[in-house]
Computed example of a mutant assay.
Amino acid sequence: MPTIKQFADCRIVIYFDDHDPPHFHVITSDRREAIVRISDCEVLTGLAAREFAEAHAWAMANRELLLARWKEFN
């Protein structure tokens, strides 16, 4: 599970051989987790986007990079 981006209170990771739709995981420093679809950055499960606002904003601006990493790992 490579870390794509590290923030002060969470990190964005993409698992190898994960299920569709293309998505990433946000894991907080206290080990809570959200799954976020790459295409529109909608939170599919877990935390509310406001709980990881910095990571969510970064992901919105870097969807092409996230999708490229998804394709590389899956």
Rank of each mutant, 00 (worst) to 15 (best):
H19C: 05
R31A: 09
L65Q: 08
L47M: 15
A61C: 04
A68V: 06
N74R: 14
A53D: 13
F73Q: 12
K71Q: 12
A61L: 11
F52G: 04
E64G: 03
D17E: 14
H25Y: 09
R31W: 10
A57D: 11
K5F: 10
A61F: 03
R69M: 11
P21L: 10
A49M: 03
A53T: 12
A59Y: 00
E42C: 04
M1A: 15
I4N: 01
V36F: 04
I14N: 03
H25W: 11
V13S: 08
L66I: 12
I35C: 06
E64H: 06
H25M: 08
I12W: 00
R11C: 09
C10N: 13
P21G: 11
D17N: 15
R50E: 13
D9T: 15
D40R: 09
V36S: 01
L67S: 06
I14C: 05
F24Q: 01
R63W: 02
A48H: 12
A49H: 01
F52E: 00
Q6Y: 06
R31F: 09
I27Y: 00
R63P: 05
T45I: 10
P2R: 14
P2E: 15
D40T: 08
W58P: 06
Q6D: 12
C10A: 14
A59Q: 05
D18E: 14
F16G: 02
L67R: 04
D40P: 02
D9C: 13
V26N: 02
T3H: 05
H19R: 11
C41Q: 11
T3K: 10
I4E: 04
M60T: 07
C10F: 02
P22N: 11
A48G: 09
D20I: 08
P22T: 10
A49P: 09
I4Y: 04
A59F: 00
V13E: 11
E72V: 09
E51R: 15
C41R: 04
D30M: 07
F73S: 05
D30T: 14
H23V: 10
K71F: 03
E64R: 14
F24T: 01
D30E: 14
Y15N: 04
D40Q: 05
T3L: 04
I38W: 00
Y15A: 06
A61K: 09
A59E: 05
P2N: 12
L66M: 11
F52V: 02
A34Y: 00
I4C: 02
Q6G: 06
C41W: 06
F16C: 02
R50W: 07
D17P: 03
A8I: 07
W70N: 09
R37S: 03
R37E: 06
E51S: 13
I38V: 11
Q6P: 03
T45E: 13
F73E: 10
V43Y: 00
V26F: 05
K5W: 10
I27A: 01
S29Y: 12
S39C: 13
L67A: 08
D18S: 14
